[in-house]
């Protein structure tokens, strides 16, 4: 286990809180969107963009940057908020989410926001796009890494497992997937719609190095990502146990907020809970 400075963790926690507030403000203002699955992946994104990934907001087209793909594209409010916090996009843009003419489209759309690595929003494709980027990295003898966040419901797509088989066969150790395991999909609980368990064994049997963590613990996430970097000859996946709607009590494990934005009152209540800006 790495020892991580307490100040570092506190810094990340404070960023995560800001991101959550942005997600609430953005979806609230838009009147539509997917708060539940945005809130569950906040720590994953914050760990990657503020601690793990090699990237430079001043140089978004840097060839050696690590690549990030949000395969579960509907969680994009969290990604936009993180990109704004990093300085890739203007913070003022956030409240234009989903509005006509905004670069912040309802799902990640590279035509409108070139800093995104791919357009996603149809589930099941991001890991395969990551495969292509990882292959290119190998061909070009580069050492950057490809990170792909997938959903647990998304893992029901056959294409995810086509990609899984390919990655291990081709020893793509420069690819690390993260599954946001919040136990829900659109129509309800994963266990009731189409269970994906035993999911750790599935990935292991597909030849992946598997880490299982609390997806809201920065210590556990950082450790897993650092260990994943050391893995040679195998792709890695971090199964991140998360809570859908994390951080807002009335949204937590309440799948109503999968694809429903908070009302004005709910927005205010959520922001109160998350702590207003000083």
């Amino acid at each position: 286990m790495h020892k991580i400075e307490i100040q570092k963790i506190e810094k990340l926690q404070s960023i995560a809180k800001d991101i959550r507030k942005d997600v609430i403000r953005m979806t609230g203002e838009a009147g539509s969107g997917h708060p539940g699955g945005s809130l569950s992946c906040v720590e994953i994104l914050v760990t990657l963009f503020f601690h793990i990934m090699r990237h430079d907001p001043a140089n978004p087209e840097w060839k050696d940057r690590d690549r990030f793909l949000l395969s579960k594209g509907h969680g994009v409010p969290a990604l936009y908020a993180v990109l704004a916090k990093c300085g890739y996009i203007d913070q003022n843009l956030l409240l234009t989410l989903r509005k006509f003419g905004s670069p912040l489209q309802g799902h990640p759309d590279k035509r409108f926001l070139p800093v995104l690595e791919a357009s996603t929003g149809s589930l099941g494709q991001g890991l395969s796009i990551g495969v292509g980027m990882a292959l290119a990295g190998k061909i070009d003898k580069k050492d950057h890494k490809v990170y792909v966040v997938i959903g647990d419901g998304e893992s029901q797509e056959g294409q995810v497992w086509e990609a899984a088989m390919f990655c291990s066969f081709h020893k793509l150790d420069n690819l690390c997937a993260i599954m946001d395991y919040n136990k829900f999909q659109l129509d309800g609980a994963i266990k009731e719609i189409l269970d994906i368990e035993p999911v750790v064994n599935k990935w292991k049997s597909f030849g992946w190095e598997v880490f299982e963590v609390n997806g809201h613990s920065f210590e556990e996430l950082i450790n897993a990502f650092e260990e994943a970097k050391k893995v040679k000859g195998k792709p890695q996946i971090i199964i991140a146990h998360t809570i859908k709607g994390k951080g807002v009590s009335f949204m937590e494990e309440n799948n109503y907020f999968h694809g429903k934005a908070p009302t004005k009152e709910q927005k205010e209540e959520a922001l109160r809970e998350l702590g207003k800006d000083p």
Binding site: A30, G31, S32, G33, G73, R98, Q105, G106, H107, D109, S119, T120, G121, S122
Partner: peptide, 8 residues
């Protein structure tokens, strides 16, 4: 469809 964007 509206706000969801082109993917949907």
């Amino acid at each position: 469809v509206g706000e969801d964007g082109f993917t949907q």
